[in-house]
Amino acid sequence: MTRAECADGNKATPSPPVVACVQLDSKHADIDANIATVRRLVDGLDSDQQGPRRQIDLLVLPELALTGYCFDSHDEIEPLLEAIPPSDEAGCESTAGPTLSLVSSLAKRFQCHVLAGFAERGPPIDPAQDTTSAAAAAAAAAAFDARSTGTRAHCPPNGTGHAYNSALLVNPCGQVVHTFRKHFLYDDDKRWATEGSGFQTVELPRIGRVCVAICMDLNPHDFRAPFEAYELASFCRRERVDLIVVPMAWLLPASDSSLFEQQRKDRGPSTSSIQYWALRCAPLFDPEAGAAQATADGAEAPPRPLTTDNTTFLVAANRTGTEGKSTFAGSSCVLRMRHGERPELLAALGVHDEAVLCAQLEET
C-alpha cells in the first residue's frame, strides 16, 4: 500500500496508522445527551491503563451519531439538520452546528482527523458544487455515480427542501476537509433525504487514499442491482483505495435476533454482520470476484491488478442500541483484506458495547 506523505512534506513514520471508532447508543433527537456520551467514551482514550495513549490518526463516529437514525418525515428531522459553513469563510466557527463543533473540538484535542455522520441541510445536488469549500473541492476526487443504469435520483417530496444523510470530515486543526453524502439510500432515509451524487476518495496523511461510504452504500443499489456488481468495492479497487470507512446505523440481522440476550451476556459481536460486510468487499480480496467485475467494468476504467502486496482495510463504525422498532447490530470492526486471502478481523466490539475501538492498520 502506498501511504500519503505527511502534511509537512516528510515521509510518514514507520509506525502503522491508528483508527478509533466510537460506538454509542444514540438517543433519538437528543443532541445534548449524545454529545455527552461521545465525550464520556473518548475520555477513556486519555486514560489508557496499558500505558501512554497512542497517537490516533482517524477518529470515526457512526451514521447520524448525534440525532439518532429513525425519522418518519422531513418535517421531523428538519429542526436537527445542520448546514456546514465553508471552512474558508471568515467567522464560520460562530455558525457551526453541534456536529461540526463536536468533531472540531475532538480533532484539536486528539490531533487527528475526525469523521462523523450527521443530517445535513444542503442545496440541490450539483456535482460541480458538491463540496463545502474550495479547499474541499481540491481535497476530494470527483464523485462517481454508481447507481443502476436508468435509475432516477431520489429526492424528498416537493417543497421540503434538500437534506442529506452525510458524513463530515475535519482535519487535526478542526477545519472542514469534505462532506460526503450517502449515495445509496435505505428505505428510512428516503422519507427525508436526497441521494448524494456518488462515491468519492480523499487523501489523508499517513493513511493514504480513503473512501468514505455510509451504511447502505455497502449494499447493492436499492437491493435491486446484481449482488456481484459490488458497486462500492469495485469503485475502491479501481481507485486503489487504501482504507474504506463506513459510518453505519446497521440493523441487527433477523438471524441474530434469537441470540440477542446471549450476545448481551457474552458481549460478543454479530458475526453474521461482519461476515456480510466482508463479503461485500469481495473484489478487494477474491480473485474470482475481482475478475468478474473487471470484465463487467470493461476497459474504460481498468481495475488495479491485485497482488499479495495490495492491502485494503475496512473500518465499519456502527451504532448500538434500540430506537423505536429498530435494533442495531453494533459490532464495529476493522478488517484487513489481501489478494487471495480470507479477510482478517483485526478488532471488533460487541453488539451491545458502548465503547471506543482502536486498531492499528498494520499491513503485515
Rank of each mutant, 00 (worst) to 15 (best):
C155Y: 10
K265T: 10
S331I: 03
C215P: 06
E341L: 15
L345Q: 12
P156F: 09
H154P: 00
I77T: 04
A139P: 03
A193V: 07
P283K: 00
T2H: 14
P156A: 11
I214N: 11
E288R: 12
V22T: 06
R206I: 01
T132S: 14
F110H: 11
L335M: 12
R267F: 03
I274P: 01
K190G: 00
D222T: 08
D48W: 06
P287D: 06
L284Q: 04
G350D: 03
G117E: 07
T307Y: 00
T271G: 00
P343Q: 00
A167G: 09
A296R: 15
T311E: 14
S331H: 08
A135P: 00
T194L: 04
P52I: 06
R191Q: 10
L279K: 09
V177R: 08
C6D: 14
L61E: 07
E231C: 05
H113G: 03
Q262W: 04
Q23C: 05
G198I: 11
E203W: 07
F227T: 04
I35P: 00
S26K: 02
P205D: 14
G198N: 00
A12P: 15
R336G: 07
G321W: 01
A254M: 09
I244R: 01
L204H: 02
K265F: 08
P127G: 05
V18D: 10
A116F: 10
S133R: 01
L232A: 10
R39D: 14
L58F: 04
F144N: 12
C211W: 03
T179A: 15
E76V: 10
P16R: 12
A33Q: 13
D88I: 13
L218A: 12
A7C: 08
I274E: 00
A163Y: 01
A355M: 07
R304T: 15
R53W: 02
L284V: 02
A348K: 02
L306P: 03
V60W: 08
S15N: 15
A296S: 14
P302Q: 09
A142T: 10
A138G: 05
S105K: 07
G9M: 04
D32H: 07
P17W: 01
S326N: 09
A249R: 03
N158Q: 15
S133C: 12
V202W: 00
A296G: 04
L61T: 13
S105C: 05
C281Y: 01
Q111I: 06
A229N: 11
P123N: 12
A225Y: 05
A136E: 12
L284N: 03
N34K: 10
V356G: 11
